[in-house]
C-alpha cells in the first residue's frame, strides 16, 4: 500500500517543485479535486512529471504511469483495454499532458485513440511551449511569442487542437482556463462521463516561460479570455456551447504587456497581432456559433 509520509487534503501533495505561480499546479489540483480516487493517471515527461515524483516518492495518491512523451493516448488505450478485459468499467483513465506531448509529438497516438473511440479522459494543459526542457517553441506557441527556439518571435500561428479533436467526432471536447475553476470542474465531471474519448484543453499560464510576474497568473488567464486570445466553450455530442461571454474584447496589448515573451514586439507586430487575434476570434466564434445551432 501507498505509505503516507506527508498527508494532503486532496489527491496531490502540497509540496511539489512547480515554479512560483504555476498555472499547471492550479489546474492539476482542480482536475483531481473534481474526480475521486478511482482514477489511473498517465503523465508523460514534461512539467506535470514533477507530480509523478522522484525515486521512491510520489506526489499523487492514485496509481500512475509515466510513459514516453508521445504515447500517452496509446498507453491509455492499453489500460482501458486491460480494465475492460478484467470487467472494470468504472475506473477513469486520465491522461495529463502538456501541449508539446499533445499537439506535436503525441498527435498521432491521440488521433488513433480518438478514432478507436477508446474511453479516456485526456487533459492537455497548455502553457504554449516546452517549458520543462527550457521554454522551446511548440505548435501551440502563439504568433510572435518569443521562446528559446523562436527567439525572434514565432512566425506562424498555433495549431487549433480542439478543432482537430472535433474533426474526430468524439463525444466531448472542451476548453477551460485556470481562472474559471467552477467551469473547469464542471467540464471535468462531464468529460469523465463521456461515452468515449473526451478532450479537455486547459489554458495554464507559465510565469517562468512567459516571463510574467507569478502573482499575475490568474490575471493573465482572465485577460486571455477578455482579449479574445482564448475562448472557452464545450462540444458535447455534436453541439457547441460557448462559455466565454465577452461583450467587448479588450486590446490584446493589455494581455501581452504583462508577459516578457511579447516584450520585443515592434509597433507593426503589435498591430498585426491585434489583427490576427481579432480575426481569429471572429472566425472561431462564427464557427462555434454555427456549431451551436
Amino acid at each position: 500500500m501507498l505509505e503516507i509520509k506527508d498527508e494532503a487534503r486532496g489527491l496531490i501533495s502540497h509540496g511539489v517543485s512547480a515554479c512560483h505561480g504555476c498555472g499547471l499546479e492550479i489546474v492539476i489540483r482542480k482536475v483531481m479535486d473534481a474526480l475521486d480516487d478511482d482514477v489511473i493517471i498517465l503523465i508523460p515527461p514534461g512539467c506535470a512529471a514533477l507530480f509523478s515524483g522522484y525515486c521512491k516518492e510520489t506526489n499523487v495518491k492514485v496509481p500512475g504511469y509515466q510513459g514516453n512523451l508521445e504515447n500517452t493516448a496509446a498507453s491509455a488505450s492499453g489500460i482501458r483495454a486491460a480494465l475492460k478485459a478484467k470487467g472494470n468499467d468504472h475506473t477513469t483513465v486520465l491522461c495529463f499532458c502538456g501541449d508539446g506531448a499533445t499537439v506535436d509529438i503525441g498527435l498521432q497516438s491521440l488521433s488513433g485513440a480518438f478514432e478507436r473511440n477508446d474511453k479516456i479522459l485526456y487533459v492537455c494543459y497548455d502553457n504554449e511551449a516546452y517549458m520543462n526542457t527550457g521554454i522551446q517553441g511548440s505548435s501551440s506557441t502563439p504568433l510572435f511569442a518569443a521562446t528559446t527556439t523562436t527567439p525572434g518571435g514565432k512566425k506562424v500561428r498555433r495549431k487549433d487542437l480542439t478543432q482537430i479533436a472535433i474533426a474526430h467526432n468524439i463525444p466531448y471536447v472542451a476548453t477551460a482556463s485556470a481562472h474559471n475553476i467552477a467551469d473547469l470542474q464542471k467540464k471535468v465531471k462531464k468529460a469523465r462521463e463521456a461515452d468515449g474519448p473526451a478532450l479537455l484543453h486547459i489554458y495554464a499560464p507559465c510565469p517562468t516561460g512567459w516571463r510574467s510576474n507569478p502573482a499575475k497568473t490568474i490575471e493573465i488567464s482572465r485577460l486571455a479570455e477578455q482579449t479574445g486570445c482564448w475562448i472557452n466553450f464545450e462540444y458535447e455530442d455534436g453541439k457547441v456551447t460557448i462559455n466565454s461571454k465577452v461583450k467587448e474584447l479588450k486590446p490584446v496589448e493589455e494581455y501581452t504587456k504583462l508577459q516578457g515573451r511579447f516584450k520585443a514586439l515592434t509597433p507593426e507586430q503589435k498591430v498585426a497581432l491585434q489583427e490576427e487575434v481579432t480575426s481569429n476570434y471572429n472566425a472561431t466564434m462564427k464557427k462555434l456559433q454555427f456549431m451551436s445551432e
Binding site: D37, A49, G53, C55, V62, P63, G64, Y65, Q66
Partner: peptide, 9 residues
C-alpha cells in the same frame, strides 16, 4: 493499491 510507476529516477 496505488503506486506510481516509472517516475524519474
Amino acid at each position: 493499491d496505488p503506486m506510481f510507476c516509472c517516475d524519474l529516477t
